[in-house]
Amino acid sequence: MSGTHHFLTDERFGTSPIHRLDPRTKILGLVGLTVVSVSTPAGAVWAFALYAGILLFLLGLSRLPVRFVLRRVAAVLPFVVVVAVFLPFFDRAGGGGYNIGGVRVSGAGLLVLWNVTAKAALGVTATTLLAATTSFPELIAGLERLRTPRLFTLIISFMYRYTFLFVEEFRRMRRAMEARNFQGRWLWQAAIVGHMVSSLFLRSYQRGERVYLAMLSRGYDGSMRTAAPLALRRADTTFLAVLAAVLLAIRLTA
């Protein structure tokens, strides 16, 4: 479980032209790439190759460790496996079947499998690139400037701050539990986990109350002020313009 929560460790790798882009640019560009690739018909295999090419190019620019990115992409594979991997063997609408080692495989099923695998992999790669080159506060500031309701972004930034604390608290409790030989094995032992969760809730909520009172006493009135305003630079506009042109060209031909 530890590997799946990489933002918790704030694992950002180095600096690069991609890191230095404005968060809004990265959000628009990479979410745009995901949306465009998801809307592309599955048959246009070359289009997906091009999307992957763009992402690989950006990944190269960002100098993210290859293994890190691969690990993130591999994290979605279980869902793909569970949901779609058996489709080629059963899809009855299968026009044009194939014979692979004596097993009949339907063409339509293969297409669905390819469709979800390619799009899920592209989406995860794009999101990983975004999250690993942008600090969480930057990401929030970017979302906010892109008209996400301020109340929502404030809640998320609060949540982000406390998540570290609570996950650590949770690990401490789990360690205590394991040190006392608890091995969760059966469903009814979920009640013990329930007690853990309730302790976690009480501790975290009481901490929230203390923080809230501290904020009140320092003049908190429901709004927050942020420093460091964002600024779009030449690099940002160039990046967005080029990316948009390329994506549109691919999508319209596909």
């Binding site: 809640i155 406390y162 998540t163 996950v167 969760g184 976690l200 929230g208």
Partner: peptide, 26 residues
């Protein structure tokens, strides 16, 4: 004005609680 601190903290709690795996069967 309690919205942000309290909902933020509760969201962090739910996030942490979702990390808890509980056993279904062996």
């Amino acid at each position: 004005e309690r919205t942000v601190p309290l909902l933020g903290v509760t969201a962090a709690f739910i996030f942490a609680a979702q990390m808890l795996n509980f056993p279904i069967a062996a």
